[in-house]
Amino acid sequence: MRIACPFCGERELGEFTYLGDAAPKRPSAFAADGAEQPDAQDLFFDYVYLRDNIAGDMDERWYHGGGCRSWLTVTRNTTTHEIKAVGAAPGAGAQKPAKAGATS
């Protein structure tokens, strides 16, 4: 299997590490107003343990540890291993969107 890293080009599977489903979004232990999230444990339980077992196209997290150390979002068909799209994680790559007002 080969993955076309958006930064390095097409590379062999051995350079990458698989993490899993890209869909779950990490909840926060605190609500937006700064108060503790009362159901934080339930939200995190879902986030940590509950995964869909998709037969078909799935967005997955892969890490290009043998290359540019970028986290990628790979759309892969889990039944054929066909890779349909490869994108970078929001914070991947040297060009990082600067926070409003930040100087760096």
Binding site: L19, A89, G91, A92, K96, A98, K99
Partner: peptide
């Protein structure tokens, strides 16, 4: 790197 790139891309840190 996962935390930086995936969880908290809004943080200005390398």
């Amino acid at each position: 790197e996962y935390c930086r790139q995936v969880l908290w891309p809004e943080l200005d840190v390398q």
